[in-house]
Amino acid sequence: MTYKLILNGKTLKGETTTEAVDAATAEKVFKQYANDNGVDGEWTYDDATKAFTVTE
């Protein structure tokens, strides 16, 4: 299944996707991606759209 990450960081904005077996796996991938790019903020998840959002 495809999951999307929407980044609303102070220095990094954009979107990326990942293929994962479930939302928990996608969340781990996205949190590592955000951490690697220096984005740390409030996380939300919308199951209807399979989209995670992180806002700094």
Score class of each variant (00 low, 15 high):
Met1Lys: 13
Met1Asp: 14
Met1Gly: 12
Met1Leu: 13
Thr2Ile: 14
Thr2Met: 12
Thr2Trp: 12
Thr2Cys: 13
Thr2Lys: 12
Thr2Tyr: 10
Thr2Asp: 06
Tyr3Gly: 03
Tyr3Thr: 03
Tyr3Asp: 04
Tyr3Trp: 06
Tyr3His: 04
Tyr3Val: 04
Lys4Asp: 03
Lys4Tyr: 13
Lys4Glu: 04
Lys4Met: 07
Lys4Trp: 10
Lys4Asn: 04
Lys4His: 12
Lys4Gly: 03
Leu5Ala: 02
Leu5Asp: 03
Leu5Phe: 05
Leu5Ile: 03
Leu5Trp: 02
Leu5Glu: 03
Ile6Glu: 04
Ile6Tyr: 12
Ile6Gly: 02
Ile6Thr: 04
Ile6Arg: 04
Ile6Met: 05
Ile6Pro: 01
Ile6Lys: 05
Ile6Asn: 04
Leu7Gly: 02
Leu7Trp: 11
Leu7Tyr: 10
Leu7Ser: 03
Leu7His: 03
Leu7Lys: 00
Leu7Asp: 01
Leu7Arg: 01
Asn8Cys: 14
Asn8Ala: 08
Asn8Trp: 12
Asn8Ile: 13
Asn8Gln: 09
Asn8Glu: 08
Gly9His: 07
Gly9Ser: 09
Gly9Val: 10
Gly9Glu: 03
Gly9Leu: 15
Gly9Trp: 06
Gly9Ala: 08
Gly9Ile: 08
Gly9Lys: 04
Lys10Pro: 11
Lys10Glu: 09
Lys10Val: 13
Lys10Cys: 13
Lys10Ala: 11
Lys10Met: 13
Lys10Gln: 10
Thr11Glu: 10
Thr11Ser: 12
Thr11Cys: 15
Thr11Met: 12
Thr11Asp: 11
Leu12Pro: 04
Leu12Tyr: 15
Leu12Cys: 15
Leu12Gly: 06
Leu12Ala: 08
Leu12Ile: 13
Leu12His: 11
Lys13Val: 10
Lys13Ile: 10
Lys13Cys: 14
Lys13Phe: 09
Gly14Ile: 14
Gly14Ser: 12
Glu15Leu: 12
Glu15Ser: 11
Glu15Met: 13
Glu15Ile: 14
Glu15Val: 14
Glu15Trp: 14
Glu15Tyr: 13
Glu15Gln: 11
Thr16Ser: 08
Thr16Asp: 03
Thr16Arg: 13
Thr16Val: 15
Thr16His: 14
Thr16Trp: 15
Thr16Pro: 03
Thr16Glu: 06
Thr17Phe: 14
Thr17Arg: 07
Thr17Ser: 11
Thr17Lys: 07
Thr17Pro: 02
Thr18Trp: 08
Thr18Asp: 02
Thr18Phe: 11
Thr18Tyr: 12
Thr18Cys: 15
Thr18Met: 11
Thr18Val: 14
Thr18Pro: 01
Glu19Ser: 10
Glu19Trp: 15
Glu19Leu: 14
Glu19Ala: 07
Glu19Gly: 05
Ala20Gln: 06
Ala20Tyr: 02
Ala20Trp: 02
Ala20Asn: 03
Ala20Asp: 02
Val21His: 11
Val21Arg: 11
Val21Trp: 12
Val21Gly: 09
Val21Lys: 12
Val21Glu: 11
Val21Gln: 12
Val21Asp: 10
Asp22Phe: 03
Asp22Cys: 05
Asp22Glu: 04
Asp22Asn: 10
Asp22Met: 03
Ala23Tyr: 12
Ala23Glu: 07
Ala23Gln: 11
Ala23Val: 12
Ala24Leu: 10
Ala24Glu: 12
Ala24Asn: 09
Ala24Pro: 08
Ala24Ser: 09
Ala24Met: 11
Ala24Ile: 10
Ala24Arg: 10
Ala24Phe: 10
Ala24Cys: 13
Ala24Asp: 10
Ala24Thr: 09
Thr25Ala: 14
Thr25Asp: 09
Thr25Asn: 07
Thr25Lys: 05
Thr25His: 12
Thr25Cys: 08
Thr25Val: 07
Thr25Gln: 12
Thr25Ile: 07
Ala26Thr: 00
Ala26Tyr: 00
Ala26Leu: 01
Ala26Trp: 01
Ala26Ser: 02
Ala26His: 00
Glu27Ala: 10
Glu27Arg: 08
Glu27Cys: 14
Lys28Gln: 11
Lys28Val: 09
Lys28Cys: 09
Lys28Ile: 11
Lys28Pro: 02
Lys28Asp: 06
Lys28Ser: 10
Val29His: 11
Val29Tyr: 15
Val29Lys: 09
Val29Pro: 00
Val29Ala: 08
Val29Leu: 12
Val29Trp: 14
Phe30Cys: 00
Phe30Arg: 00
Phe30Ser: 01
Phe30Ile: 00
Phe30His: 01
Phe30Met: 02
Phe30Thr: 00
Phe30Asn: 01
Lys31Ala: 05
Lys31Phe: 05
Lys31Asp: 02
Lys31Gln: 07
Lys31Asn: 04
Lys31Trp: 07
Lys31Glu: 04
Gln32Gly: 06
Gln32Met: 09
Gln32Leu: 08
Tyr33Ser: 02
Tyr33Asp: 01
Tyr33Ala: 03
Tyr33Trp: 14
Tyr33Met: 05
Tyr33Phe: 12
Tyr33His: 04
Ala34Ile: 06
Ala34Gln: 01
Ala34Arg: 00
Ala34Met: 06
Ala34Leu: 11
Asn35His: 15
Asn35Leu: 15
Asn35Trp: 15
Asn35Cys: 14
Asn35Lys: 15
Asn35Arg: 15
Asn35Thr: 14
Asn35Ser: 14
Asp36Arg: 09
Asp36Ser: 09
Asp36Cys: 10
Asp36His: 07
Asp36Gly: 05
Asp36Met: 11
Asn37Pro: 01
Asn37Ile: 15
Asn37Leu: 15
Asn37Val: 15
Gly38Val: 03
Gly38Ala: 06
Gly38Trp: 05
Gly38Met: 06
Gly38Arg: 06
Gly38Tyr: 06
Val39Ser: 02
Val39Lys: 02
Val39Trp: 14
Val39Asn: 02
Val39Gly: 02
Val39Asp: 01
Val39Leu: 11
Val39Arg: 02
Asp40Phe: 15
Asp40Trp: 14
Asp40Met: 13
Asp40Arg: 13
Asp40Ile: 14
Gly41His: 01
Gly41Leu: 03
Gly41Ile: 02
Gly41Glu: 01
Gly41Gln: 02
Gly41Met: 02
Glu42Gly: 05
Glu42Lys: 10
Glu42Met: 11
Glu42Cys: 12
Glu42Tyr: 12
Glu42Thr: 13
Glu42Ser: 10
Glu42Phe: 13
Glu42Ile: 14
Trp43Gly: 00
Trp43Cys: 00
Trp43Ala: 00
Trp43Arg: 00
Trp43Thr: 01
Trp43Val: 02
Thr44Phe: 10
Thr44Pro: 00
Thr44Ala: 09
Thr44Trp: 07
Thr44Gly: 06
Thr44Ile: 08
Thr44Asn: 07
Tyr45His: 01
Tyr45Pro: 00
Tyr45Lys: 01
Tyr45Ala: 00
Asp46Ala: 04
Asp46Thr: 04
Asp46His: 05
Asp46Gln: 04
Asp46Asn: 08
Asp46Met: 03
Asp46Leu: 04
Asp46Val: 04
Asp47Phe: 08
Asp47Thr: 08
Asp47Cys: 07
Asp47Ala: 14
Ala48Thr: 11
Ala48Cys: 09
Ala48Lys: 12
Ala48Leu: 12
Ala48Phe: 11
Ala48Asn: 11
Ala48Gln: 11
Thr49Cys: 08
Thr49Gly: 07
Thr49Phe: 07
Lys50Glu: 02
Lys50Cys: 06
Lys50Tyr: 08
Lys50Trp: 05
Lys50Asp: 02
Lys50Val: 03
Lys50Arg: 14
Ala51Met: 13
Ala51Gln: 14
Ala51Trp: 05
Ala51Ile: 15
Ala51Asn: 05
Ala51Asp: 03
Ala51Gly: 04
Ala51Cys: 15
Ala51Lys: 10
Phe52His: 01
Phe52Arg: 00
Phe52Thr: 01
Phe52Gly: 01
Phe52Val: 01
Thr53Met: 09
Thr53Tyr: 10
Thr53Ile: 08
Thr53Phe: 07
Thr53Arg: 05
Thr53Ala: 05
Thr53Ser: 06
Thr53Asn: 04
Thr53Glu: 05
Val54Ile: 10
Val54Lys: 00
Val54Ala: 02
Val54Leu: 11
Thr55Tyr: 08
Thr55Asn: 09
Thr55Ile: 09
Thr55Val: 08
Thr55Met: 06
Thr55Lys: 06
Glu56Asp: 09
Glu56His: 06
Glu56Leu: 09
Glu56Asn: 05
Glu56Val: 09
